[in-house]
């Protein structure tokens, strides 16, 4: 066998390992979750109760699905105007200027801060503010977690939309200017519509990030196993409940946590798949 053939085989088999890892993950999660699914069936995602008391054990992911959606949607809604403005700052108003380079680097650094550091900052800085405002359960809750999450996902939404906005061809903008439009009118009626799928994809990917963030949320959401009544109730997300309860878990509880991980895996996979698909179509 010649060396070229061997090279090809090595390349294929190593790449195949990636498929194997992903497949193995799905297999392990599914087989780990089976005891829980067998015990609870559909009520695993419909019943409202997560109760570890022995003898009356009942595990349902619903409170955490609700917590995840509430924090992530809150985060997205807060991040939306901020990231939109920042991407216009970077990709349109101050494109290719020094100030944009500095601001862009700072946005990138936001993505570099470890989740646990965000959690600390949220705990020691944001939470006391929430307490002063009389919001939340001692400042903990869905909103506080969503607020810190919004800062964490802004870089993901911003970097993609900024790039796409900067790529809108100049001659389109000039055509709009030549009709007597102001920069605001050009931006909102021509530039942003032309970049809309990229901007949209950026928000989807950012949302996917928010769904799976663990540490900062764990430190701020208040960790209760109930469906949050409102934005200022405490709760748990799918990720934070795994982090919180994994240590003491075995048997049915561990299986239920694995089932939650499986759900999280599938949901983030779908969200990311959709985001990437939109980007690909846009190219």
């Amino acid at each position: 066998m010649n060396s070229d053939k061997i090279t090809k085989i090595v390349l294929v088999s190593v790449s195949f390992l990636i498929l194997l890892i992903a497949g193995g993950m799905v297999f392990s999660l599914v087989s780990g979750a089976i005891p829980s699914f067998k015990e609870f069936g559909f009520s695993f995602i419909t019943s409202k109760e997560w109760n570890p008391t022995e003898g009356r054990e009942n595990y349902s992911a619903l409170p955490f699905i609700a917590g995840t959606l509430m924090t992530s949607v809150t985060a997205l809604l807060i991040a939306l105007p901020l990231s939109f403005a920042t991407s216009l700052f970077l990709g349109e108003y101050y494109r290719n200027t020094k100030i944009a380079t500095i601001l862009g680097t700072m946005v990138d650094l936001l993505a570099g801060i470890p989740s646990i550091v965000y959690g600390l900052w949220g705990f020691y800085v944001l939470r006391p503010i929430m307490v002063d405002l009389g919001l939340g359960n001692q400042g903990f809750g869905v909103f506080t977690a969503g607020l810190i999450l919004s800062i964490m996902i802004i870089p993901y939404a911003t970097s993609l939309s900024n790039e796409i906005i900067a790529m809108v061809p100049n001659d389109l903008k000039e055509a709009a200017y030549s009709l007597g439009a102001t920069r605001l009118e050009v931006t909102l009626s021509v530039t942003v519509p032309a970049a809309r799928s990229g901007i949209f994809a950026g928000y989807i990917l950012a949302f996917g990030r928010a769904l799976g963030e663990t540490m900062a949320v764990t430190m701020l959401i208040g960790n209760s196993n109930l469906i949050p009544d409102n934005l200022f109730s405490s709760g748990n997300t799918m990720a934070s409940v795994i982090a919180n309860q994994f240590g003491e878990a075995d048997g049915l509880k561990l299986s239920s946590l694995i089932a939650i991980a499986l759900l999280l895996f599938v949901i983030t996979g779908i969200i990311n798949g959709v985001g990437k698909y939109i980007i690909k179509k846009f190219d």
Binding site: D171, E174, S178, L179, A181, V186, S189
Partner: peptide, 25 residues
């Protein structure tokens, strides 16, 4: 003004392209 390369607004219909000036203003 008319430019070197045709540059109709890609997100607008033919109709909207023609009255784009009014819309933009």
């Amino acid at each position: 003004m008319v430019f070197q390369r045709p540059n109709p607004f890609p997100t607008m219909s033919i109709y909207d392209n023609v009255i784009a000036g009014y819309k933009l203003n």
